[in-house]
Amino acid sequence: MISKEEVEKIASLTRLELSEKEIEKMQKDLTSILDYFNLLKKAPLPRQSFAAQSDGGKSLGLRSDELMQKDNSVAEKIISAAPDKKDDYIKVKTIL
């Protein structure tokens, strides 16, 4: 069974607050799901490693990184969706 500490560590990595009850249920659920993943140990080994198969995204045909002009109203709408804002800025709590 996956430990309480392990669940807490993963939750903190992903910035997720869990209640005691949720942690307990998560231990149970993750354990049965991770057990199921053990099935993959039976899968054949590839002739080529995953890293060697990768071509750095070339085959995905990624677009070039260029500016696209957008109407100013889109920016306004995006800012207005923020929970806390001032003028044209999204407000966050102090970091330091």
Binding site: I10, A11, T14, R15, L16, K25, D29, L30, I33, L34
Partner: peptide
Amino acid sequence: LKSKGHGFGAEVKRRIMIGT
């Protein structure tokens, strides 16, 4: 922590945890 903790439902939390 609190926004995600309050905002996401059980299955979404589970998947984020599995993925992480």
